[in-house]
Design a protein around this nucleic acid. Structure first.
Lengths: 238, 238
DNA sequence: GTCTATAACCGGATAGAC
DNA sequence: GTCTATCCGGTTATAGAC
């Protein structure tokens, strides 16, 4: 017990420092953007040494990963208050819009997210390995959504749907990043349009008559995922 | 005349140096990958100074842009020998496959392409401004393809189709980058599957009965493009 | 063993002489 | 148009404090 509590104290202190650095980083990113923010200034702002910042975050990119994690937690927290008893479409709409609300304060600097997300080696890469915990958790949100849906969806589609919805949500985020309309109104309009479309598409695809088409489409998607998941020993840098 | 020829001599010399640097860069990229290649080593390999390399290429990323340009030219050259008289589907298949053949030697280092392409600020960004000449030229390939097609396609779709095919081709390239199967066989299989699918989809969408659906889809696509094309004064780095 | 600090390295980018 | 010298910031090595 003594050892354990000693451990946890040390860890607590570490966690505090870690949080301090992350907070400082996000503040300066927010003010100056990603490229213009130096690791040195982050360290200074957090009141720690440069080396210490690197002790907690292996690289500047790791701070982005941490940011992703943070906003995911906030998204989850926002979702916790969500009423269960509505339609699938209504719930999907809310989930997506709450995500945007969570990201809102960081719109200016969000561009860098996708620079890393598109990198084949990045765990954020939508087509990449399933291993990243943040990404798993992020897909789980849509899993819950599909589970709790009061619609009949065929098994094969149901299995793939959380991932597809997650991909869709990534697409929306990508659009949002580019969206310079006031308050990102365009993104919200796009969400309305596409959620409506998606809802109809899912109903359509669930129709027994569509089975062959659906099967074919799902096989294609599966193939895409499969191929992406065995990346072998590549020569690209980590 | 004298002035002009003097000019052109200077330019010629410049072009030579430029080509020398680009050649050196591609060779080392090919051997060592992008990240591992230093500007210093490129300069040394080309027999020029570091500063001189920067005189011709504003940044390391500019070399990627130049690479894009080069492979586009090669793609065009390969297409020049293409017979005109076949079906749309057959031509599309050839265009895509020739593109892959052109890129083949650079498969190992191609990952970086998409790091830049996904950057909102990058001219390679598929959703970004239309201004980039290489990209325009690249879309023109599909414009020609659509023009010379021996199929009846409604006007509204025909207008958007080149861009959509270009987007599709970017998707294939993205997949190809991740594809570690021997000789990228998976990509070629994917091309076969999806070109077939696309061909059917285009026929389907061209059906007069599909007009409302088509209109709606095209409006959505147009909205996406539109939003992307006015990026205003962003705070992100160039 | 957990954490923090200082000094140095390395490579992309720039300034300014020739 | 080409060079040399220098800056700047991400990253690493390493020594020591708690």
């Amino acid at each position: 017990m003594g050892a354990a509590s000693k451990e946890s104290i040390k860890t607590q202190k570490g966690e505090l420092t870690r949080a301090l650095i992350l907070k400082a980083a996000l503040e300066i990113f927010h003010e100056r953007g990603y490229e213009e923010t130096t690791m040195r200034s982050i360290a200074k702002h957090a009141g720690v040494s440069l080396g210490n910042a690197y002790y907690y975050f292996g690289s500047k990119e790791h701070l982005i990963q941490a940011f992703y994690h943070l906003t995911h937690e906030q998204h989850l927290a926002a979702l916790a208050t969500l009423p269960k008893g509505t339609t699938f479409k209504a719930r999907l709409l809310t989930v997506i819009k709450l995500k945007m609300t969570t990201l809102q304060p960081y719109h200016e600097f969000a561009g860098v997210l996708f620079k890393t997300a598109a990198n084949p080696q990045s765990p954020l890469n939508p087509f990449g390995s399933d291993s990243d915990p943040v990404r798993r958790a992020s897909i789980d949100v849509f899993k819950d959504l599909v589970e709790s849906a009061n619609v009949r969806i065929p098994k094969d589609l149901k299995a793939e749907l959380p991932y597809l919805l997650w991909l869709y949500h990534m697409g929306i985020v990508l659009f949002w990043i580019h969206d310079s309309s006031p308050k990102q109104r365009r993104t919200y309009r796009l969400i309305d349009t596409t959620v409506d479309l998606l809802d109809k598409l899912i109903s359509l695809a669930s129709n027994p008559l569509m089975r062959p088409v659906r099967k074919r489409a799902l096989r294609l998607i599966e193939e895409l995922r499969e191929a992406a998941n065995d990346v072998g020993g590549e020569s690209l840098a980590v």
